[in-house]
Design a protein around this nucleic acid. Sequence first.
DNA 1: TTAATTAATTAGGTTAATCTAATTTATTTT
DNA 2: AAAATAAATTAGATTAACCTAATTAATTAA
Lengths: 222, 222
Amino acid sequence: MHSFTEENYLKAIYKLQEANGLVVATSALAQVLEVHAPSVTDMLKRMAGKKLVTYQKSKGVKLTEKGRQVAVGIIRNHRLWEVFLVDKLGYKWDEVHDLAEQLEHIHSEDLTNKLDMFLGFPKADPHGDPIPDANGVLPKSKAVLLSTLKMGERGTFTGVTDHTPAFLNYLDKSGISLGNSIKVKAIEEFDQTYTIQLKDKKDTVISYKVANSLLVNKAEAA
Amino acid sequence: MHSFTEENYLKAIYKLQEANGLVVATSALAQVLEVHAPSVTDMLKRMAGKKLVTYQKSKGVKLTEKGRQVAVGIIRNHRLWEVFLVDKLGYKWDEVHDLAEQLEHIHSEDLTNKLDMFLGFPKADPHGDPIPDANGVLPKSKAVLLSTLKMGERGTFTGVTDHTPAFLNYLDKSGISLGNSIKVKAIEEFDQTYTIQLKDKKDTVISYKVANSLLVNKAEAA
DNA sequence: TTAATTAATTAGGTTAATCTAATTTATTTT
DNA sequence: AAAATAAATTAGATTAACCTAATTAATTAA
């Protein structure tokens, strides 16, 4: 079995690879894992020895297929436990991340699958992030940033790109919840402030920063 | 926070203290933790430094109050997770131990308490072992071994002292389940084999070994 | 394209948790 | 009580995961 540390490296590499391209830099890993660069170099060598990553000196790392499987498995665990915490235990969506960081390392495929069933095979976690299936397949999402919509366009709010409690709380406070349909009423040219209309609600003004952190499934043009 | 290793030592010391008396021997710990004696000596010194145990060279260890609190907290976690696994995920009582050994180390009192509530504040785990409350108080049980009952006496089966899957499976196979009322119909003098009557069932013959691994709440004499 | 800057690696250490082999301390047995 | 046995400790190593300081490699700027 893999250590928690290895699993955290794998997850971090996976996420950086998704976000920024093929190869991941030592410094990027050091930053997200909150360790110093030489520790990363060290660890990557060990992980390369276990065929979890391909590592080329001073060139960065990539996951091997084996590494990707492990990484996706952990993400699956994480997101399922988040659903459990919110749906079953009554946690709020901004409270579950740290607990899920612990729970994701429980080693049992069987438990994961039983949990999945218990939760009713959810397709996304409380933040709208897709849950990989038992084979490690992630549903391809067609969601786009709200900030890419033009005047008059509509969509359904399906996820966030900023997972900080601060941002999630802001959304709660503003009455913006997953599943809401949103229409762009106006975009201020000067500072790209968005005026949006939430289903059955009066218009709300959000900053570009916010619009750029919300994922929506764009409604088909009528 | 304490490491998983420390927590496992604390739990082991707690259980040995309960079972065998005040002070726990290095060798006993080495055996249950499946490590070698010098590792135990080493660890005990470090734990004594953290005031989790009182350790006297060559004299054995005891938990401090602080150590006891941590140990009982872990046992609380363990047993609550076992209830979760059986009641919510559909595991059998002989399958949950190893998973609970992992889950017990999730660090969050709040999670433990929310889980407790979600499960309906169970008083015992699937094997009948009592669950400590949020203050670390364990309900005192008056259960006795079935092997201490005399001819004609009755009781309710409330727990086991042998938690091995093999034994638990044997009980399943024999139709002996937690909560069953049991009456001693006969005790064979020669080998102490018990003939017992299960509620609504025909008589069953069990060995002394089995009778000595079953806990019952003795019925008051009418 | 050389110089300056930034990123990554090597070298050498630390800590927790383990090990084996050797020694010391306790407990039994004669 | 001395000898034999068993239990515990010390001594010295190992491994994973981290660190700082020094060096080398890669990138960017002049």
